[in-house]
Amino acid sequence: MLARRIGGKLGSLVLTLFLVSLLVFFSRFLVPGDPVSFLLRGRKPSPEAIAAVTEQYGLNLPVWQQYINWLTGILQGDFGRSLQFRQDVSVVVGERLPVTLMLVVMAGLIIGVLGLTSGIIASLNRGRPLDRAILIGLTMLGAIPSFVGAIVLIAIFAVQLGWFPTFGSGEGFADTIYHLTLPSIALALVFVVLVGKVTRSSMVEQLGREHVEVATSRGLRRAVVIRRHVFRNAIGPILTVSGLLVAGLLVASSIVEAAFGVAGIGSLLVQSVDRLDFPVVQAIVLLVVTAFVVVNGIIDVLEPWIDPRSAAGGSAR
């Protein structure tokens, strides 16, 4: 039963990834004109360069053959060669990935702590001034895009107060954390709001449920009722939304990394778009999307533990 479920989910995940790979690969064919000149935009189309690109992409092969070659390459960790660095894409991306992961993890911690706390506090005080204050605060905070957050943080904490560096990602663990503090805050802002709001509404919905009234009527202390019956039942939607945020975080990191001069895959993506280095763009897009699909696949598999009704195929109510 369980194995079949996980098998089914896995199949669906692979199918989604397959469709994603089609989209990423064939997007190039949306651009009218000949593929060699597309890939060599902005570069001198020297005969050697043309030959190299044709060879690397197998551009003289049929399209489906090109796709299969590309896909088998990727499955073996070969994402092609970067046009700007003249290195393997996997090397270029691999060098920059750790910083971005660190940034995303730090932002994730901030989002988890602040989002959950604000949402829970607001829901437990629903309708009262504190709830209202948190809601207004969240609405305001939610309107601060990461690049605005970034420049405001730089202006105040880096330039005026001089507490944090304005640029770079530092060396070594502690220094990296120090360098990534402001970037992770800027990155987290909007997402704190999303998690805070979904936590609040999910909690409020559960607080209004009759089973909560029943638990209260049996003489359980309020804290116990909140923990065992309200928060426990509210986890599902919070987890779902958090899963959806993963890809957003990875992409938004490009803005934050650009603003703080952090050399992660986000700034690499922007740089590669700017320098028309399409193989790197393809690789990063694929990476981000795969991360999203896998994380959400995991959440999907976990669902029966979060909501036992979903295992039976029953609808949630």
Partner: peptide
Amino acid sequence: RAGINPMR
């Protein structure tokens, strides 16, 4: 059905 926590 509403009165008993569906997740426990």
